[in-house]
Protein backbone atom coordinates (compact mmCIF):
# COMPACT_ATOMS: atom_id res chain seq x y z
CA UNK A 1 0.00 0.00 0.00
CA UNK A 2 2.88 2.32 0.83
CA UNK A 3 4.22 1.86 -2.67
CA UNK A 4 0.84 2.74 -4.12
CA UNK A 5 0.66 5.96 -2.11
CA UNK A 6 4.20 6.85 -3.10
CA UNK A 7 3.42 6.24 -6.75
CA UNK A 8 0.33 8.40 -6.55
CA UNK A 9 2.31 11.20 -4.96
CA UNK A 10 5.07 10.84 -7.50
CA UNK A 11 2.72 10.94 -10.46
CA UNK A 12 0.81 13.98 -9.22
CA UNK A 13 3.92 15.84 -8.04
CA UNK A 14 4.47 19.16 -9.76
CA UNK A 15 8.18 18.57 -10.19
CA UNK A 16 7.48 15.30 -12.00
CA UNK A 17 5.55 17.19 -14.61
CA UNK A 18 8.29 19.83 -14.88
CA UNK A 19 10.86 17.08 -15.49
CA UNK A 20 8.65 15.30 -18.01
CA UNK A 21 7.99 18.58 -19.81
CA UNK A 22 11.73 19.04 -20.31
CA UNK A 23 12.23 15.44 -21.45
CA UNK A 24 9.27 15.28 -23.84
CA UNK A 25 10.01 18.75 -25.21
CA UNK A 26 13.65 17.90 -25.80
CA UNK A 27 12.79 14.58 -27.48
CA UNK A 28 10.50 16.34 -29.93
CA UNK A 29 12.84 19.23 -30.67
CA UNK A 30 15.67 16.80 -31.24
CA UNK A 31 13.60 14.58 -33.50
CA UNK A 32 12.36 17.52 -35.55
CA UNK A 33 15.79 18.90 -36.47
CA UNK A 34 16.89 16.07 -38.74
CA UNK A 35 13.49 16.03 -40.46
CA UNK A 36 13.49 19.78 -41.03
CA UNK A 37 16.98 19.73 -42.49
CA UNK A 38 16.19 16.84 -44.86
CA UNK A 39 12.56 17.17 -45.97
CA UNK A 40 12.99 14.88 -48.98
CA UNK A 41 14.43 12.16 -46.76
CA UNK A 42 11.47 12.44 -44.42
CA UNK A 43 8.99 12.29 -47.32
CA UNK A 44 10.55 8.92 -48.17
CA UNK A 45 10.15 7.83 -44.56
CA UNK A 46 6.45 8.77 -44.52
CA UNK A 47 6.02 7.03 -47.85
CA UNK A 48 7.67 3.88 -46.54
CA UNK A 49 4.94 3.57 -43.92
CA UNK A 50 2.60 3.07 -46.87
CA UNK A 51 -0.47 4.56 -45.22
CA UNK A 52 -1.25 7.98 -46.71
CA UNK A 53 -1.82 8.68 -50.39
CA UNK A 54 1.30 10.19 -51.89
CA UNK A 55 0.22 13.85 -52.11
CA UNK A 56 -0.98 13.81 -48.52
CA UNK A 57 2.21 12.18 -47.31
CA UNK A 58 4.25 14.98 -48.90
CA UNK A 59 2.25 17.64 -47.07
CA UNK A 60 2.30 15.61 -43.85
CA UNK A 61 6.07 15.15 -44.10
CA UNK A 62 6.86 18.84 -44.51
CA UNK A 63 4.36 20.00 -41.88
CA UNK A 64 4.91 17.45 -39.11
CA UNK A 65 8.48 18.37 -38.08
CA UNK A 66 7.46 22.00 -37.57
CA UNK A 67 4.56 20.98 -35.38
CA UNK A 68 7.01 18.85 -33.38
CA UNK A 69 9.51 21.68 -33.06
CA UNK A 70 7.07 24.39 -32.07
CA UNK A 71 5.06 22.34 -29.59
CA UNK A 72 8.33 21.02 -28.13
CA UNK A 73 9.56 24.57 -27.61
CA UNK A 74 6.22 25.66 -26.10
CA UNK A 75 6.27 22.67 -23.77
CA UNK A 76 9.73 23.45 -22.45
CA UNK A 77 8.96 27.15 -22.13
CA UNK A 78 5.72 26.33 -20.38
CA UNK A 79 3.60 28.44 -22.69
CA UNK A 80 0.23 26.85 -23.54
CA UNK A 81 1.62 23.80 -21.80
CA UNK A 82 -1.56 21.74 -21.73
CA UNK A 83 -2.39 22.51 -25.37
CA UNK A 84 1.12 21.50 -26.42
CA UNK A 85 0.74 18.30 -24.40
CA UNK A 86 -2.51 17.61 -26.29
CA UNK A 87 -0.77 18.18 -29.64
CA UNK A 88 2.24 16.00 -28.83
CA UNK A 89 0.16 13.21 -27.29
CA UNK A 90 -2.20 13.17 -30.28
CA UNK A 91 0.78 12.94 -32.63
CA UNK A 92 2.23 10.09 -30.60
CA UNK A 93 -1.11 8.28 -30.85
CA UNK A 94 -1.08 8.77 -34.64
CA UNK A 95 2.50 7.39 -34.74
CA UNK A 96 1.39 4.45 -32.61
CA UNK A 97 -1.37 3.61 -35.08
CA UNK A 98 1.06 3.88 -38.03
CA UNK A 99 3.61 1.67 -36.26
CA UNK A 100 0.93 -0.87 -35.29
CA UNK A 101 -0.34 -1.13 -38.86
CA UNK A 102 3.17 -1.88 -40.08
CA UNK A 103 3.89 -4.32 -37.27
CA UNK A 104 0.70 -6.11 -38.27
CA UNK A 105 1.81 -6.13 -41.91
CA UNK A 106 5.16 -7.52 -40.84
CA UNK A 107 7.02 -4.72 -42.60
CA UNK A 108 10.67 -4.25 -41.73
CA UNK A 109 10.73 -0.46 -41.55
CA UNK A 110 13.15 2.03 -40.17
CA UNK A 111 11.23 4.17 -37.73
CA UNK A 112 12.65 7.39 -39.17
CA UNK A 113 11.82 9.04 -35.88
CA UNK A 114 15.14 10.67 -35.17
CA UNK A 115 17.29 9.85 -38.16
CA UNK A 116 15.63 10.01 -41.56
CA UNK A 117 18.50 8.18 -43.26
CA UNK A 118 18.54 5.10 -41.04
CA UNK A 119 18.01 1.91 -43.00
CA UNK A 120 16.37 -0.43 -40.59
CA UNK A 121 15.28 -0.43 -37.03
CA UNK A 122 13.33 -2.28 -34.43
CA UNK A 123 9.69 -1.31 -34.79
CA UNK A 124 8.80 -3.04 -31.51
CA UNK A 125 11.27 -0.85 -29.66
CA UNK A 126 9.70 2.18 -31.33
CA UNK A 127 6.27 0.92 -30.27
CA UNK A 128 7.27 0.65 -26.61
CA UNK A 129 9.06 4.01 -26.65
CA UNK A 130 5.99 5.61 -28.17
CA UNK A 131 3.74 4.30 -25.38
CA UNK A 132 6.19 5.59 -22.79
CA UNK A 133 6.10 9.05 -24.36
CA UNK A 134 2.29 8.98 -24.44
CA UNK A 135 2.25 8.30 -20.69
CA UNK A 136 4.53 11.32 -20.20
CA UNK A 137 2.22 13.50 -22.27
CA UNK A 138 -0.83 12.43 -20.28
CA UNK A 139 0.93 13.14 -16.98
CA UNK A 140 1.76 16.65 -18.18
CA UNK A 141 -1.78 17.25 -19.37
CA UNK A 142 -3.39 16.15 -16.12
CA UNK A 143 -0.90 17.28 -13.49
CA UNK A 144 1.06 20.26 -14.81
CA UNK A 145 0.51 23.24 -12.55
CA UNK A 146 2.59 25.73 -14.46
CA UNK A 147 5.69 25.51 -12.27
CA UNK A 148 8.86 26.82 -13.89
CA UNK A 149 7.00 28.16 -16.86
CA UNK A 150 7.12 31.44 -18.72
CA UNK A 151 3.37 31.91 -18.64
CA UNK A 152 3.23 31.64 -14.83
CA UNK A 153 6.12 34.05 -14.60
CA UNK A 154 4.04 36.70 -16.32
CA UNK A 155 0.55 36.01 -15.05
CA UNK A 156 1.37 34.68 -11.57
CA UNK A 157 -1.58 32.32 -11.47
CA UNK A 158 -0.61 28.70 -11.41
CA UNK A 159 -3.25 26.09 -12.01
CA UNK A 160 -4.85 24.65 -8.88
CA UNK A 161 -5.29 20.94 -8.82
CA UNK A 162 -7.50 19.62 -6.02
CA UNK A 163 -5.45 17.49 -3.65
CA UNK A 164 -5.69 13.93 -4.83
CA UNK A 165 -5.60 12.60 -1.26
CA UNK A 166 -9.09 12.31 0.20
Amino acid sequence: MAIFTFLKKFVSNKYTSVGLRMILGAVFIWSSIDKISDPEGFIKVVESYNILPFTLSVVFAVALPWVELISGLLLIAGVYTRSSAVVLTSMLIVFLVAISINLYRGADLACGCFDVQSESGDLWLTFVRDILLIVMGLQIFFFDRGSFSLSTLFTKNSRKIPDSNP
Binding site: V67, I70, S71, L74, Y80, S83, V87, S90
Partner: peptide, 14 residues
Protein backbone atom coordinates in the same frame (compact mmCIF):
# COMPACT_ATOMS: atom_id res chain seq x y z
CA UNK B 1 -5.16 26.49 -28.86
CA UNK B 2 -3.93 22.97 -29.68
CA UNK B 3 -5.64 23.22 -33.06
CA UNK B 4 -4.07 26.61 -33.67
CA UNK B 5 -0.60 25.29 -32.81
CA UNK B 6 -1.01 22.45 -35.31
CA UNK B 7 -2.43 24.72 -37.99
CA UNK B 8 0.16 27.50 -37.70
CA UNK B 9 3.13 25.14 -37.43
CA UNK B 10 1.92 23.13 -40.43
CA UNK B 11 1.53 26.35 -42.38
CA UNK B 12 5.13 27.31 -41.56
CA UNK B 13 6.30 23.86 -42.61
CA UNK B 14 4.43 23.88 -45.91
Amino acid sequence: VAGLIVFLSSAIGV
